[in-house]
Design a protein around this nucleic acid. Structure first.
Lengths: 233, 233
DNA sequence: GTATATTAAATTGTTGACAATTTTTTCGCC
DNA sequence: GGCGAAAAAATTGTCAACAATTTAATATAC
């Protein structure tokens, strides 16, 4: 049977909006974005009705999104009390950085083994003068964007979907704290040096070095976070 | 305010059953158990109404459990089609074992550093004669139980909640395949040797060796799975 | 008899209403 | 005015009915 014709005037090929899974995904992305950028601060409460109204979705669909955010550790829900943006403790931050060290160092090694050395040249160039200029100009958002780009490239080159899916939530969870450290402590120039070292190892096709230097980079990042944890957590 | 007295005859201290979060958790555990043990085979479809009836919960609550199972990768849901027990592909299995290698080797190192060497003595003993006897008697369930015990101890000693929560789903996902390899190929005696080596390193307080040997153990396990993947996937 | 279209049944997704719980406000009392 | 109990409001969790979609069954043409 052909589907009953949509009322004249409604856009022809738009999914029936009633069951479009995309509308839920959009809301989920929006919430994740607000949390990882700090628009929704750690500890903030998320009220169902008002949020649902604002995002123009029903409460049930918002709750579906909540379930996913909870599963990835971005929010905490306590029965009958509500949902709150997850607040990183110092102990949990340490755990997260240890997990990232294990997974990202493996990624670095895999990336070095999988991708041809020449394929990293553009990142060598990007992290030389251009990113240096960004840091010196105090454009930390630009710096962070380049770092994110490198990370995506590394993870993609590693070719491990499972690790990629584990790292996503871990990066989201540490995003706010990382950003605060960068903004508050001028650590970007230190970080830049570390990233250059990792990229150089990839460019040289040296998997061992790439792995080792990614480990070192995360150790440094953790040390900085620990030093300023009263400020950023 | 004191809660209004329950109708006479109803068990006094039972939570109002209407909103008890435990009932949902029980159903979730039951489903996870059925999947990881293979009672619900990879690819099997999970129908909402019949399952809800069987578990004596409402459909909405079952769907909540489905959301969690999907988030941990134990089931796949396709819109309007239903939920199916996740089926591991060979490529994904490789990814999972790489991720486990990264995380479990880190755990082994942390465990060696955190826990006093003497604390591993009971596992040294357990994996000597007693487990050897189990393997020789063909009691693979007993063998797997001991392996699970060791893993719990190692993860607990590592003291990293985040890694523990990442490993849980990974272990669940590979559980069925692992079990099939053991049962079908007599690989238990090989595995036993590897586990003994890891435990010996922990007993000696040698973090480097523990890490390295855990890596080796997982490499071996992966090699076995790859060899027999047509049989077990 | 096989293939294709049509109808019916079964299944999933979403909504709105209701119940249980928490939080806020109001009221009485000292 | 401050403290505590009671009532009211707001908020979350659950359910049952309904809508949308897929799957199975039936009929029809060739």
């Amino acid at each position: 049977m052909t589907r009953p014709a949509p009322p004249p005037g409604s856009p022809p090929s738009s999914p029936p909006t009633q069951r479009d899974p995309d509308v839920g995904r959009r809301a989920l992305r929006e919430l994740r974005h607000r949390i990882t950028t700090g628009v929704l601060a750690p500890g903030a409460q998320l009220h169902e009705q008002s949020l649902a109204d604002e995002l123009a979705i029903s409460r049930s669909r918002l709750r579906e999104a909540f379930a996913r955010l909870e599963a990835t550790g971005l929010i905490d829900r306590t029965p009958n009390r509500g949902a709150f943006v997850h607040r990183l403790t110092i102990a949990e931050a340490r755990d997260v950085f240890q997990a990232r060290e294990a997974l990202e160092s493996m990624c670095a090694g895999l990336a070095a083994r999988n991708a041809p050395p020449e394929s990293w040249q553009d990142l060598v160039d990007l992290f030389a003068a251009p990113t240096q200029a960004l840091v010196e100009a105090g454009d930390f958002e630009g710096y962070l964007a380049n770092v994110a780009l490198f990370r995506r490239r590394m993870i993609q080159a590693a070719g491990n979907q499972t690790i990629a899916e584990l790292l996503g939530p871990l990066l989201d969870r540490s995003a706010v704290a990382m950003r605060r450290v960068i903004l508050a402590t001028n650590r970007a120039s230190d970080g830049l040096v570390q990233y250059r070292a990792v990229i150089a190892a990839l460019r040289a096709g040296d998997a061992e070095a790439a792995e080792q230097r990614k480990r070192a980079q995360l150790h440094e990042a953790w040390a900085a976070l620990e030093r300023y944890h009263r400020l950023v957590l």
